[in-house]
Design a protein around this nucleic acid. Structure first.
Lengths: 215, 215
DNA sequence: TATTTCTGATGACGCATGTCGTCAAATAGC
DNA sequence: GCTATTTGACGACATGCGTCATCAGAAATA
């Protein structure tokens, strides 16, 4: 043994898995368990014991991957929103060559709302992340800004006369994103009463008319 | 004593206050303490002991007024939003005779955002209430619907061609309200970087252009 | 003044939590 | 096969929580 006093830097293979593979699998199990529990009983009601029971692992491996439940929440939120954001961007890019504003906007919105038809994802991303801690609040705020910037970049492509900079244009984009996100949150809270198409067309009209007024 | 076995139905005066006056004062003290704590350290971090210390009272009087902290949160949220809603309605009614859509919308928005310049109120109403429990979620959702109905009724007055009913018109109004509320939430999270006027004009443009497209 | 009610302070209870330690069984490397 | 590591099960510890009981002193009533 090279350094018997310290913890081993590289673990052994066990059950046909290398140490890093095991760690990655355990991390994924906790991420899945977290999405399930945060998205059903809520973040506040979720304890480390429950997470372990859901993941089928013991607490030792939880603390090896996350410092606390808040860090797990941050990881799940970031992963979910990364996925959704890249899906939306892919949908936008797919329709961008058409040059049809209506189609581009609709494609982006439809992909967005489709992602939040998963109520667990929706609940975590719109309800559970808010008011947990300053750190999580900052995460949420930064993500909102990212979507705002995405909207602005698309608007600049579609509308040459769109005011690129300026606080007001920025806050208009922010309000538009807010309309979309709040629609998603209320969609969830209403038990998905309306079909997705209604959400998409309503928000498309909002985007189209506002961008028309500015572009 | 009429009924020695039961708790006294009507208390005695004490310290120059009647029993009902005392109870009302204690309730108000807890409401103020709740707004202070929920709006600073957050709902999750607030305990009954802290609330009592902040209110300068003991726990017995807390439980005489509220069953738990969740009921206190609901009471504070309802009171705050009632106040804001009636302020906004008063502002709208004050400008309604002018018939000037721009002035009416701006007056309502300015009153709305002015209320949330109080960061404690803003934090409780936009961050802390979310994801606490199904009951509080329902309270939040219902309030959003109320603001949506308020917007629709104003739109019907200003725009004779506004589609009164229909899911889509309803969700458009919901998205518009969402834009306003999300602006308020992000305004808080960004530390009120932009002046209120910017928020008002940005959201006024959103409302004006969308209502123009429909009216 | 004597009695009853109200108040604030303090402590105790049962419970759930995060976290850590122990111990036997399972697995891998020599 | 022997030894070291990894795993899961279980329990212990301190902490903080909501909640309730007690008790001495203040204030009102008769």
């Amino acid at each position: 043994m090279a350094n018997p006093t310290e913890a081993p830097e590289s673990g052994r293979t066990y059950g046909g898995e290398s140490a890093t593979d095991r760690q990655a699998r355990q991390r994924r199990q906790f991420m899945d368990a977290g999405l399930t529990l945060f998205g059903s009983i809520g973040y506040r009601a979720t304890t480390v014991r429950l997470l372990c029971k859901q993941a089928g692992l013991i607490d030792r491996y939880f603390y090896k991957n996350f410092s606390d439940t808040e860090e797990l929440l941050a990881a799940i939120y970031t992963e979910s929103m990364d996925q959704i954001q890249s899906d939306v961007m892919a949908a936008l890019m797919g329709e961008l060559p058409s040059g049809d504003t209506e189609r581009i906007v609709t494609a982006g919105l439809d992909t967005f709302f489709k992602a939040f038809e998963n109520s667990r994802v929706a609940r975590v991303c719109w309800l559970e992340v808010l008011g947990v801690s300053p750190r999580i609040d900052a995460l949420y705020a930064r993500r909102t800004v990212q979507f705002t910037e995405l909207l602005i970049s698309v608007a600049q492509r579609l509308l040459p006369r769109w005011p690129a900079s300026g606080d007001e244009a920025h806050y208009i984009a922010m309000a538009l994103i807010g309309g979309v996100t709040q629609s998603a949150a209320h969609w969830l809270l209403s038990g998905y009463r309306a079909p997705r198409k209604v959400l998409v067309t309503a928000n498309a009209l909002l985007l189209r008319s506002t961008m028309g007024a500015l572009g």
